[in-house]
Simulated scan of single mutants.
Amino acid sequence: MRSMSVLPDGCVIRQATPSDIWSIRFLVLRAKLDPTQIRWQQFWVIECSGDIVACGQLRDYSGVKELGSLFVVPAWRRRGLGSILTQHLISSCDQPLYLECLGQRLANFYSHFGFYPVTWKELPRSLQRKFRVSQLAKTLRIVPVVFMHYRES
Rank of each mutant, 00 (worst) to 15 (best):
R2W: 13
S3I: 09
S5A: 11
L7A: 06
D9M: 04
G10W: 05
G10L: 05
V12F: 10
I13R: 03
Q15V: 11
A16Y: 00
A16H: 00
A16E: 00
T17S: 11
T17W: 03
S19M: 11
D20Y: 07
D20C: 07
S23Q: 15
S23T: 14
F26Y: 14
F26A: 11
L29W: 13
L29Q: 13
L29A: 08
R30T: 15
A31S: 07
K32Y: 12
D34N: 14
P35K: 06
T36L: 12
Q37N: 15
I38M: 05
I38F: 07
I38H: 09
W40A: 10
Q41W: 01
Q41F: 04
Q42E: 14
Q42Y: 11
V45S: 04
V45K: 03
I46F: 08
E47G: 07
S49E: 15
G50N: 04
G50M: 01
D51N: 15
I52F: 03
I52L: 07
V53P: 05
V53G: 03
A54V: 03
A54H: 04
A54Y: 06
C55S: 13
G56N: 01
G56V: 02
Q57K: 13
Q57T: 09
R59E: 10
D60W: 00
K65Q: 15
K65G: 08
E66D: 04
S69L: 00
S69D: 05
S69C: 12
L70A: 06
F71G: 02
F71H: 11
V73S: 15
W76I: 02
R78E: 14
R78H: 15
R78C: 13
R78G: 09
R79C: 10
G80I: 08
G80W: 08
L81Q: 04
G82C: 05
G82E: 08
S83W: 00
I84P: 08
I84V: 14
L85K: 01
Q87R: 12
Q87T: 09
Q87Y: 09
H88N: 09
L89G: 06
S91H: 09
S91I: 03
C93V: 10
L97P: 00
Y98M: 02
E100L: 08
C101L: 02
C101S: 10
Q104A: 11
Q104W: 04
R105C: 01
R105A: 12
L106H: 12
L106Y: 04
L106T: 07
N108D: 12
N108G: 05
F109A: 10
F109L: 09
Y110E: 03
Y110A: 01
H112W: 11
H112D: 13
H112N: 13
F113S: 02
G114L: 05
F115H: 01
F115R: 00
Y116Q: 13
V118I: 07
V118F: 01
T119H: 05
W120P: 05
K121A: 13
K121L: 12
E122P: 02
P124D: 03
Q128L: 01
R129W: 02
K130D: 13
F131P: 02
S134N: 10
Q135N: 12
L136Y: 08
L136A: 10
T139R: 09
R141G: 10
R141N: 14
R141H: 14
V143I: 07
P144K: 00
V145T: 15
V145C: 10
V146Q: 11
V146H: 12
F147Y: 08
M148L: 00
H149G: 08
R151L: 15
S153G: 15
S153K: 14
